[in-house]
């Protein structure tokens, strides 16, 4: 059986990736609202996923306020696909 990607096999990182699968683009605040995790923790996990090339972060200004948004990359999409397939194999789904 395939080994589960250790980067994704973590509750917060997996939650972030699942939100990115379901949406074209999400903001940092949206992730905070949906996961109820701390700002620092979310920030660290996003950096790890970004370093792995699983997501792209874009920083901009809207009405003079900073806005951080992110999108899943093709590499991230493949990783999630492989991860969910491995999960299904483990769970015999």
């Amino acid at each position: 059986m395939k080994e589960l990607d250790p980067l994704l096999h973590n509750q917060l990182r997996l939650s972030i990736m699942a939100l990115l699968i379901a949406n074209e683009q999400v903001s940092f605040n949206f992730i905070l609202e949906q996961t109820n995790a701390s700002r620092g923790n979310v920030s660290v996990q996003i950096s790890k996923l970004e370093e792995a090339g699983y997501l792209e972060v874009e920083k901009s200004f809207v009405n003079k306020k900073p806005l951080t948004t992110m999108k899943i990359t093709p590499k991230g999409l493949n990783a999630m696909d492989t991860y969910t397939q491995a999960l299904k194999d483990y769970l015999n789904l």
């Binding site: 973590n10 997996l14 939650s15 699968i21 949906q34 996961t35 995790a37 991860y83 969910t84 999960l87």
Partner: peptide, 24 residues
Amino acid sequence: MKDNTLTQQQSMEVIREMIQRSKQ
């Protein structure tokens, strides 16, 4: 949300829950 590792079943639940929350 805790930054912990998961069982396979919990992983599936996390994915399901996040996609459900994103539903418009």
